[in-house]
Design a protein around this nucleic acid. Structure first.
Length: 340
DNA sequence: AAGCGACGCAACCGCGGAACG
DNA sequence: CCGTTCCGCGGTTGCGTCGCT
């Protein structure tokens, strides 16, 4: 249908932004808000296209951006959400207060992806590389059915998170504009508690008894009150090299150490335990789908910190724990942070 | 001290889809 | 319903910085 360019290519500046340009953009947005990006540059006196202005604002100038090193908890959150969502950086960003999707994407590509690769984990599938190869050979009908179910649930969860992300963004925008004295169109989502449920919520009594429903409760940031992000993992910092596991830890990297699941935290017993992530991503769902899962001891809250109950149950437990931790993660409100 | 490659981050590009007339 | 415009997302690139030789 023919698409006009986002801006006239001639006469528009490209490349790094100067402090003067930043100041102009900031001043304009503080004055008028960021309504139409297309018309903004001309009004703000900038020789840039609207796209460039939007990018500069969202990735750099926004006052609610935290810059600098990612915390361990943030790293863990990114990895877990990436396992769930894939390269949906904007959705991931909504669960990381004050981080932009671009920053998360860059951090993933430059740090986390390499780190997982070093640990023998496919950063795309979050499965151990050997398993990733094997997974393509499965011909069993039962297995493929389970995989389809897994995929289906993951798709729903993904779609739900995207919807959440949109609502959070809208809420943040309204908050900012409200603070600028320009209240925008009222939305039913504003200041309201939003509850989005995944479809399998409704079948929890028919086989997902112990699976904490991936229900999200979003509270608008306008009230400025919200629960603190739950701790997700426990790390112990170390700069030592681990020749046994083949993992070379660099300065600033951390050994992922844990003791099982405790108080909504996913804990790894050793660096190799992260290999369980891949299995958990697939097997966790499959187990949940296949098992009766009515054992109340499988719920997060009652989980023993030992986690080494042994035998095949051990894998099963870990997988459930892993998936529950991800669901817990996405259940935590992304809007708990004071955005402005 | 200079050269060179690796790395990290900011910014750009193209596409998909929502919104609107 | 269709065509057009605009926004936002994800992938990619380019350039500055750092560290090694």
């Amino acid at each position: 249908m023919g698409r006009s360019p986002c801006c006239d290519k001639v006469g528009l500046k490209k490349g790094p932004w100067t402090p003067e340009e930043d100041q102009k953009l900031l001043a304009y947005i503080e004055e008028h808000g960021c309504g139409s990006w297309r018309g903004l540059p001309a009004k703000a006196g900038l020789q840039r296209c609207g796209k460039s202005c939007r990018l500069r604002w969202t990735n750099y100038l926004r006052p609610d951006i935290k810059r600098g090193k990612f915390s361990l908890q943030e790293e863990q959150t990114i990895i877990q959400l990436h396992a769930l969502l894939g390269n949906r950086w904007s959705a991931i960003a909504t669960h990381l207060p004050k981080r932009t999707d671009n920053e998360i994407k860059n951090y993933w590509n430059t740090h986390l992806k390499k780190r997982l690769a070093k640990m023998g984990i496919d950063p795309v599938t979050h499965k151990p590389k050997s398993d990733a190869l094997l997974s393509g050979t499965g011909t069993d009908a039962h297995q493929s059915k389970n995989a389809a179910n897994l995929s289906h649930m993951a798709q729903w969860e993904s779609a739900r998170l995207e919807a959440e992300a949109r609502l959070v963004r809208e809420s943040k925008l309204r908050t900012f504009q409200h603070r600028l004295g320009r209240p925008t169109i009222a939305s039913s989502a504003s200041a309201a508690q939003l509850v989005l449920k995944s479809p399998w919520n409704s079948v929890s009594n028919a086989g997902f008894g112990d699976l904490e429903s991936p229900k999200s409760t979003l509270t608008s940031s306008e009230n400025g009150i919200g629960p603190s992000p739950m701790p997700l993992a426990e790390f112990t910092g170390t700069a030592s090299a681990s020749s046994e596991t083949g993992i070379i830890k660099q300065e600033g990297e951390h050994e992922w150490k844990g003791l099982g699941l405790s108080n909504n935290s996913l804990l790894f017993t050793d660096p190799t335990s992260i290999h369980e992530i891949g299995n958990a991503m697939e097997d966790g769902f499959i187990n949940l789908l296949l098992n009766d899962s009515t054992d109340p001891s499988l719920s997060d809250s009652g989980k023993d910190s030992d986690g080494n109950s042994g035998g095949s149950d051990y894998h099963c437990e870990d997988n459930k724990n892993y998936w529950n931790s991800i669901l817990d993660l996405v259940n935590s409100s992304p809007s708990d942070s004071p955005m402005f």
